[in-house]
Amino acid sequence: MSGPAGFLIFFLTYAVVYAILAIGLNIQWGFTGLVNFGVAGFFAVGAYVSAFMSGSPSPYHLGGFGIPFPFALLIAMVVSGLFALILGIPVIRLREDYLAIVTIGFAEIVRLIIVSERNITKGPYGMGVIKPYKEVISSPMYGLFYLGISLAILAILYLAIARVVGSPWGRVLRTIREDERVALVLGKNVNWFKLQVLVLGSMVFGLGGAVFAHFFNFITPNHFLPMETFLVWVMVMAGGSGNNLGVIIGAVAVRGLWEGMMFLSDVLPQGVQIGAVRLGVIGLLLILVIMLKPEGILGERKTASDIL
């Protein structure tokens, strides 16, 4: 499919990828108040791992191991989670502003490794990623088919996360967000919960990375700039931290704004770069959300526990 329908499918699939990332960050920041500025790092890990796992063998990069798509996704999640675990065990106890710097540094290091280790990742040249099930789906319909897969993944994720954030586990997370000391006097092992949240959220980022890789079919280190992290932050903060439906709407809206700015090129004077404008607009959004609407546009639902 091409033309407007093709563009719509492209746009929606891209939005689904970000909705997945936004749900991951919502678990960490929205529900627990855990600051992770390293979203792009885990996103990259998921994308590259899934690419290594699913591709056919190549002398130019690690893998491929020809593993079926669903398993490649799972492995991408597990490896992302392992990265989070290894990073988290020492640093989870740090104060939130230190954690912010450490995680942003972590994501930059991940990107640096991808750029530098050309034998593994093909470095800045980027590597191709397979289209799953392309043998069974006719190519004009493939975009729609993959959108369907992505939506199904998002739906499963949404339900799985809704179940735990509405449980006593989720209630502990909110307690930690509201006041760590209260969580402590109620006997909750705060660092252990935070570590779980860091790992679970990062597994979701890994999943987002994998879905992205198989959608784009070509990944380079430039897909994982710190900007990606801040985009997801805008989605979560604008959509309403602690509200998964809100952050999905946030993801679609911010993605729409991002793509929409492409049409600015007709209006803007010659030579003005869309990339620079986008950078500025996202920066402005971050500032405005904190200054005008720190609780997000939709806000949180009232009952924390809804398991009954």
Partner: peptide, 18 residues
């Protein structure tokens, strides 16, 4: 404050490019 600072970083960098 930190988030606003990040927003400013993006905004300033974008202005330099423009």
């Amino acid at each position: 404050m930190m988030v606003v600072g990040i927003g400013l970083e993006l905004l300033l960098r974008s202005s330099v490019r423009l």
